[in-house]
Design a protein around this nucleic acid. Structure first.
Lengths: 342, 342
DNA sequence: GTGAAAGCGCTAACAT
DNA sequence: ATGTTAGCGCTTTCAC
């Protein structure tokens, strides 16, 4: 274990002062060319790297962003995360990640762990538990401690901060309108995430679209549950009904309805058109591939990182007002919906 | 923006010395009960949190682990990552994440960014580029700088450090033996990751098993490519042959061969048995669901974190020797293979 | 052109 | 029981 090189060390070995070394390494014009070169070469030789912790202490900034994500196994969050990571790196920031696992306690704990100077700001998507319990003290505390927060996807109206969201409601309207154009007569609405704000928005968008198209909103064609298990339990009953179109609010619901339909010998898309919210590569790999509402995860992440860093680096007099950025979704038509022949 | 509370602040306002405050807050027996209470209450009032950066500087340790992952969208890595994050948190460590995106340059850059005191150690899976170019200076440098490294899954024999791997070779042998037991006569070997050490190990395990079972290793039944695209291009030709068993080294190969087979009306598993390396929830969601070699991602992550932290916290005289831990895989029989009726 | 000194916030050995 | 001091590694102002 060799000693890590420090300014002090180098100064002693070169018989100059610490500040000379510091200035030489930062290429200050105060220092003469010869000493600069001498110092710089010696530093390279010793593989000197300025201790980041010390620099952070001086700067009162760590150039680090805390990211709190409910579940990294969800490909949507994974995509957003990779967007955050990229944008942050591009601007010289590191990313500390915590996975809340949808638990309020872990979310609070993570924020406390990091709210002591470890990170300059947070990017997060609210855990399910925090969302159902409408618990948001910990977010407000961070903000009032002068640690900015950017929320994405799952947001809390009660908290004033920057936000990046998808136009869930409108996207659902759009998707259902598409099913209507495909002449689906009995459109089912499926959700396994009705406990989340985004789930509710999408479901409401679907209902709105049905009403606007003069469809009757038939409760027998609607499954709104909070978990995949509860969803699966209700799925069989759905097939008692004569459905020819499905709008699924989440990936699980979309895939399971297709799986069931295939088992029953229902032809997709000839007899049943399916559209679902989904990211990941898997919608493409399915047989038939799933037509999706794609949420542009990486863009969401990039926007969130940009907003946060812009705020962090804003000069005192030009701190931006809180903003909510809406990222447009895209309807990706694949094999689970018929081609529109208009 | 209110001032952040510091020891200095509190000391001044309470008319005591900084060290009194420090000791009172850490509940030192040196301090009298009354002052302790006075200080502690005032600190709580002011919402004092010890500045972590300063503490780190003092301790010469950040309790932070740098994790470098080739691709977080790959569910295997996502699972490992969540295992790391959990185990690290349990032991009071934070996790800084970088995504190398399989790029050597990003990998090197990430390590440089963090090798300056920002992290106490690394957990990583070698990027594809580093692996093909056999480039490993950056790893050795970190280690010789006294920043321990734990590699998982994609490892480099040239680098001496702790490692966590899956028994890729044996797992492949086992999987192929299973196909043999199912009386498959023409077993195809498919890989879209033949550039990776793990891909090669699995392919070799497959060949070994074929030979040991007195099968001829027919090159026409083997697709070994480096990318999904190259793989897809070769897939059609495979179906010219009369295959009844498939061993797929990676998820992409497994799913694509099933998709193609279904399109051609080949019945799975009646006419074709498929086993693939895969994690993620998707193998279950497929129709038919995919029989997989499951790699226990979270366990790998946990083990890696444990190994690293144990080394970091080992006392000078009991630093462990470098170790390679092998995590056993599990053959998960689902619908893409026939039931074994022995 | 170079160096001394203060300070970032905290801890801990050492006075008092 | 409380305070003083030094020091972690660095930057930066101010002397020389």
């Amino acid at each position: 274990m060799k000693q890590k090189a420090t300014l002090k060390q180098i100064a002693k070995e070169l018989n100059v002062s610490i500040s000379t070394v510091s200035k030489a390494l930062s290429n200050s014009p105060e220092i003469s060319e010869p000493t600069k070169i001498r110092v710089q070469e010696f530093a390279k030789l010793k593989n000197y790297k300025p201790n980041n912790v010390a620099v952070n202490l001086k700067n009162k900034s760590t150039k680090t962003i805390g990211v709190i994500i409910p579940n990294i196994l969800n490909p949507f969050f994974a995509k957003v995360f990779s967007g955050i990571e990229m944008a942050a790196n591009d601007r010289g920031y590191n990313v500390i990640t915590c996975i809340s696992n949808e638990s309020l306690e872990k979310e609070i704990h993570a924020m406390e762990m990091l709210s002591n100077g470890t990170v300059d700001g947070f990017i997060l998507s609210v855990s399910e538990e925090a969302q159902t319990k409408r618990e948001f003290k910990h977010f407000k505390e961070a903000i009032s401690d002068d640690i900015p927060v950017v929320m994405f996807d799952r947001i809390l109206d009660e908290v004033k901060c920057d936000k990046v969201i998808v136009d869930d409601f409108d996207s659902a309207v759009h998707a259902v309108n598409h099913l209507v154009k495909l002449e689906c007569k009995n459109i089912a609405l499926l959700s396994a995430i009705d406990n989340l704000s985004v789930g509710k928005l999408r479901a409401n968008g679907c209902k709105r679209a049905l009403i606007d198209n003069n469809y009757t909103v038939d409760e027998d064609l609607i499954i709104l549950t909070d978990t995949p298990e509860a969803f699966d339990a209700k799925l069989d009953a759905l097939f008692e009904k004569n459905i020819d179109g499905v709008f699924a609010v989440d990936e699980h619901a979309a895939v399971m309805v297709m799986k069931h339909a295939i088992k029953r010998g229902i032809k997709i898309p000839e007899e049943l058109n399916v559209i679902g919210f989904a990211d990941g590569v898997w919608s493409r790999r399915l047989t038939p591939s799933l037509s999706t509402v794609s949420q542009h995860g990486p863009e969401i992440g990039e926007s969130a990182a940009e907003m946060l860093i812009n705020r962090l680096e804003a000069k005192e007099e030009e701190i931006p007002v809180y903003n909510t950025k809406v990222i447009k979704t895209e309807l990706r038509q694949r094999e689970s919906t018929r081609k529109l022949t208009v």
